[in-house]
Design a protein around this nucleic acid. Sequence first.
DNA 1: CCCTGTCGTTGGAGCGTTCCAACAACGGCC
DNA 2: GGCCGTTGTTGGAACGCTCCAACGACAGGG
Lengths: 330, 330
Amino acid sequence: MASRAGVSKSLVSLALRGSPAVAPASRDAILAAAAALGYRPNAAARALVARSSRTVGVLVLDLHNPVFAEILDGVLAGVRARGYRTMVVTGSDAAQERPELDKLLEFRVEGLVLVSHRLDPAALRAIAAETPVVVATRRDVTGPGIDTVCTDDRAGAELAVRHLVALGHRRIAHLGGGDDPVAADREAGYRAAMAAAGLGRRTAVLPGGLDDAAGYAAARAALALRQRPTALFVVNDFAALGALAAVADAGLDLPGQMSVVGFDGTRLSGLRSIGLTSVAQPLADIGRLAAERLFDRIDGRRTRARHTVLPASLVERATTAPPGRGPARS
Amino acid sequence: MASRAGVSKSLVSLALRGSPAVAPASRDAILAAAAALGYRPNAAARALVARSSRTVGVLVLDLHNPVFAEILDGVLAGVRARGYRTMVVTGSDAAQERPELDKLLEFRVEGLVLVSHRLDPAALRAIAAETPVVVATRRDVTGPGIDTVCTDDRAGAELAVRHLVALGHRRIAHLGGGDDPVAADREAGYRAAMAAAGLGRRTAVLPGGLDDAAGYAAARAALALRQRPTALFVVNDFAALGALAAVADAGLDLPGQMSVVGFDGTRLSGLRSIGLTSVAQPLADIGRLAAERLFDRIDGRRTRARHTVLPASLVERATTAPPGRGPARS
DNA sequence: CCCTGTCGTTGGAGCGTTCCAACAACGGCC
DNA sequence: GGCCGTTGTTGGAACGCTCCAACGACAGGG
């Protein structure tokens, strides 16, 4: 307490927050004393009396998948823009998520952004009853106090299939993503677009997963199909990289003999040495928008749940071409 | 306040923290009341009276570079293992770093992990005077209260060069990383290893940068050299991916006509479709160790600064081979 | 029977802020 | 010259917790 400036703590509080009611002489003395003492206001005390921590909690599923890192970056930027702090935790395994979120709630974070999650619906709703929650990239669990921001995964998948169909492909296989709810939407979009193109009978979904190893294995299985596909639509970029390797290992020319489309539009897929055609999500926007939605609730501007679905867009790069052109390079 | 259990707040506090001095009957009543009321202790109030926030601040330079995401993951795991919370901020631009760290200090974080940073030495030392600081991946700024954890970048670079020399390469160019201090160490290692191999006169350093676009440009310049190199040692994996693209664009067979070695050993480089030979850093260990060092100080076990240098190791993958084998694929 | 120790429990102080009612000093006004 | 409003400042209460000294009840020992 800088009574060193010869004033009361109340005046110090006023001066440090820039109140105009403080006499210039006092203000200068207080500022000088604060600088000399290296005084810093205590945010915990402030949070206690103000009953608001000016802090937002963020759970991110898996930092190793670049998608989540890119969304997180958007969330952090959005939160910073409002002058709030961010507490970040990762749900290293599903069982850890609940206790980690409990720690955030004990800190009285004013809201929670979940960049994907593995909570059961009941747990999620219980948390949303305590504090505003915005879920990014998932929209399967809804309820009061739960906003969602995600990409139109179904439409995105349809975009991918239509692109391949337009190129002349007929045998288009889908490498799935296991029991992930987002993967289910993408698969549904694939099936719908295949049916709409009159290729319903050619629909082929291979069980896969969300990482490159799973993509590799699924692609191997696809290539071994009796009716070998000429194009693969993969559940996400990460797995698509595995599929790319499987195609190369099989000695097939890419994209001459096999086209591959991913999903996510990570920077990764755009690297020149990869050049993966992909359905892009507006990742940074998702993060920033999730933060904005949260502040709408923190500011009390909203009561009804809001669900935002952003459009996906196809980014054509080097891994797609008309089928059957053989190993020649254009 | 669960006076609903018919006891004092003191006893509630005791019971909730599991004190053995509480009678079983009281404990059960308190626990039941707490559950019924959805009571959660207020961490801010606890931090205020305990004068410890049980929170660690983390600054991470750039989430888009997978290296930092992987280190961050290690830090989060290390902090979680101790039951502490984590406040994460990113230094989106250099000028933002100081104010972001100030916010963390206002919260009385008990220590700071800086996963790289762009602070000037004076600012860093001023912060270290207030709270323990561990710097990961850099060791150029030292001082009391500043521990460092990083990889032996010099030795790692030497490893890369020796690997290429052992394969028979003589013209080995280095694509640098600009004015980054870590890049300087790697360049020094390159120069030393070239000299040690009797190739001092063949030393060629091309100005580059830390991302794929910079790597692409630097590689183009290297390929245009009068004495075209047969191998490129690139400052990091991210830039090496750009170099890979430049090599492919030049129509050179890889690794037959050009070998490329990166640095970092990110998961990215290990993806099957990339298969980049790289000098690997123990990324998760760096993060976890940084957290441990910090807790050593938080626990008061340390006073002198400690500097840990971890060994790098070469991971051979598909982008290196003996020189001049031509376009044939093995 | 009183003294003493143990056990379970309690109220009050204090952590560092913010907020609020109240204050002294000082002019200007009627 | 007493009254009032303005300006700058103050002390105390409150936020929700932890810590501590002290409490009553009860049992065992002298």
